[in-house]
Nucleic acid binder design. Structure first.
Lengths: 148, 148
DNA sequence: TGACATTAGTTCTAACTAGTACAATAATAG
DNA sequence: CTATTATTGTACTAGTTAGAACTAATGTCA
């Protein structure tokens, strides 16, 4: 139970875990982003398109909960997707504060082409991890998420 | 070996792992950022200050390798830290392309106060994970990093 | 040595990011 | 019913982000 100082702080037992989490995430995120770039979408834009796929439209709140994009950011992301003609804001929700967002015909077309392609692209790498490791990792990552 | 379609793509075995990784990282990053905000630093700025602590100065390349901040971004981060008087660019490196960055006296003072505090803050949460889980997670995260 | 490639850091751009403040709407309590 | 409170999405800000083009300095090789 030694006091933490500027000298010994880096030697805490949990630091390798912290660094492992950051590096694993970054490695994945960079790889994922390379796939999106071929489609002409940013990671956030792809995240929204893929979330809206196979739905009849979702509100900003729902999209945000699924993608972890905060609402202030989401306004801009949806703006750009709307400019590209891939989604549209819809009116007529029971709660008039809510604005559902739907894929346009072009958005659906892009979704159907790009989503399976991106999943297949990711699968080539994730498949290198065996079932046992994968299951263990899922459990441990859930525990880590719940620490915070 | 079924073909991946827009319908079944979300049901691939690796998706829960992908989502677990993203959510664990985000939960950690948000918690970490709350700690930095009390110091008046952004996560990237804190990352640089903490990397420079206990060194005689590091080049942009070295800082980038440690923090995973790309060089284009790092220029701006160091600019702002220099404006705050926390770091300074130093000349005199053997390789005249290199620009070492050092903490100023104020930077050292901030580092010595803030670094142990942030580590202690993170430790309160990471300590809730037992040794066995931590060791397993470190190994699995390394495997995940190496997938990409 | 001279041509060529590589590396370090800067500059610029488009986009994302969290946070705050705000307006419109809805829910709740008295 | 009405005052207060909470929720939804937008506007705005400062800062981060990756990528590409660029300059200066270094390394390589013939």
């Amino acid at each position: 139970m030694e006091k933490i100082t500027a000298q010994n702080a880096s030697k805490q037992d949990f630091i390798p875990l912290l660094r492992g989490l950051v590096r694993a995430y970054q490695a994945f995120a960079n790889f994922d982003a390379r796939g999106h770039r071929d489609i002409g979408l940013t990671p956030s834009q792809a995240d929204v398109i893929f979330t809206l796929g196979n739905t009849e439209g979702l509100t900003f709140k729902e999209i945000g909960e699924h993608t972890l994009i905060t609402k202030g950011t989401l306004t801009g992301v949806v703006d750009r997707l709307e400019q590209k003609g891939l989604v549209k804001r819809v009116s007529g929700h029971d709660d008039r504060r809510c604005t559902p967002v739907r894929l346009t015909a072009r958005g659906v077309k892009l979704f159907k082409a790009a989503f399976p392609k991106q999943i297949a692209y990711l699968k080539t790498r994730f498949d290198r991890l065996n079932d046992n490791d994968r299951q263990q990792a899922i459990g441990l990552l859930k525990k880590i998420e719940n620490l915070f």
